[in-house]
Design a protein around this nucleic acid. Sequence first.
DNA 1: CCAACCATATGATAATTGTCATTGTATGAT
DNA 2: ATCATACAATGACAATTATCATATGGTTGG
Lengths: 228, 228
Amino acid sequence: MDLSCSCDLCDLKGLFFENLEGDQLEMICSGKVEKEYSQGESIIKEGTQIRDFTYLKSGLVKLYRSDNSKKEQIITISKPFDYVSLLSVFSNERYNYSVAALEDSVTCNIKMEDIRSIVSNNGVLALNLLKRMSKVADKIILDTLKIRRKHLRGRVAFLLIYFSQDVYFSSEFDLPLSRKEMAEYVGMTTENVIRSLSEFRKDGILKIYGKTIHIVNMDTLKSIAEFG
Amino acid sequence: MDLSCSCDLCDLKGLFFENLEGDQLEMICSGKVEKEYSQGESIIKEGTQIRDFTYLKSGLVKLYRSDNSKKEQIITISKPFDYVSLLSVFSNERYNYSVAALEDSVTCNIKMEDIRSIVSNNGVLALNLLKRMSKVADKIILDTLKIRRKHLRGRVAFLLIYFSQDVYFSSEFDLPLSRKEMAEYVGMTTENVIRSLSEFRKDGILKIYGKTIHIVNMDTLKSIAEFG
DNA sequence: CCAACCATATGATAATTGTCATTGTATGAT
DNA sequence: ATCATACAATGACAATTATCATATGGTTGG
C-alpha cells in the first residue's frame, strides 16, 4: 500500500473505513481532500450542490438553516465523531442546511461517487454508515424535543451544561457561540438569553467574563436544566 | 420461487427490495410477518427491545415520545412510503420513541438480523436504505424547524394544510388527531389549539363539525401558515 | 482618528401563550 | 341507567417571552 496515504493514521478511520482493504482504501486515500477552516468560516452553504461526503476530523461546527429571512436557526453542534455531513447527503442533490466552523476545524472530503461505489460493494461498511446516520439523526431529534420542553432558563442551562460536560469537560470554558447564536439554537431571542445569563450570574450560579463561563454551582444549574 | 410469497405483489417492494433476487427475497418472504392495528392501537412502545424492522404498508401513524412525565410529544406523522421504523433501528438496542396507529394500519415486520444479513451482502440495497433514512430524518428535522418559526395560529394552519394537501388530498377531511394530539405535535397547549380553530371558524376560514374540517379559504390559511 | 458596526447589557412595555376554572357532550364500563 | 372519564369549548387571569429603546465597550475600515 502507498505509504503516502495517511488514512491509516486517521483517528476517524475506524468510523467508516475499518472494513476497507486494498483497492477500496486506496481509492479513498488517493481521492480524499483535507480542508482547514478557521473559526467563523463557512464550510457548507445551504442550496449548494453536494459533491463530497464531508466529515469532521477536528474542531467544532454548527449546523444551521437560514430560510429566506435573515434569521438563522441552529440545528445542532457537532464535534468530531458526532459526525457531520450526514443528513441530506444520500437523498438530496443539494444541501438544505449550512455548516460553519465554531472553532478552527479540519474536514476530510471524499467524492460522493467514491462513497457510493464503495458502499455498493461493501455491505458491512454500509451497515456501519446506517448505524452512524441513525445515531446522528436520533441525537438531533431527541435534543430538539428536550429543549422544546423547557422554558428559557432551562434551555440556556441545558446548553451550558452541554458545553461543560460534552465538549470541554470542565466547569470553566470559553463559549464558542455568541449570545445571538445561543438564541438561535435554543429558539429564543438574544435579549432573553442574555437576561438568563445575567440572572444566573446574579444568583451566583455562574461567573461570566465575556465569553468565558465558569459554572460555580453545577447542581443548581442542572436542576434548572431539568426544570425545577 | 415460492408462489405463496406475496412480497412480489407488495406496493412497497420497490422501496427496499427491488434489488433482491432468489435467496434474499426468499429470506424476506418466509420471515416477514404482517400485523394489523386498529385506530388508536399501540404499534411500538418506547423502551422496548428492537427485534424487527417495521414498515407501514397502509394506514397512518404517529411517532411520539413520552419522557417520564405523562406529557407526550409527537415527533412526526407518517404515511406509507414516508416510512417508519427508521430512527434508532440501526443504532440502538431499544426504541427511544413510540408509534401508534392514527387510522387502521398494516405493518410488515422483518427480523433485524435478516435485514442486517441482507444489507451486509447487498450494497445497492444498503444505498437505497441510506437514501430513505436520510429523507425521513430530513423531513422530521426540517418540519420541526418550520413549525418552531411560527406562532400558534401559523402552526395550527400548517398542520391543517398538511392533512389537506399531503394526506387526504381534499379540502374536507376528518382530523386523525384529537385537539390534544394536535397540541402535542405543534408544541402548544390544547386550549390554545382549540382557540385557534375557533378563530379560524369565526373568520370564515374553516367549517368545523367535530373532527370533520372543511377548509373554506385555503389562500388565507396558507398565508397564516407562512405567517402574515 | 473617527464613524460605523456589532455584541453585550438592561429596562419598560406589549404580545403571546399557559394555567385554572367551568360547562357541555359523548363514550364506555359496571 | 348512571357514573366516571375523556374531549371540546370558552373566559379570566397569570406567566412567559418578544419588541423596542437605549447605553456601553470593542473592533474594523476608511
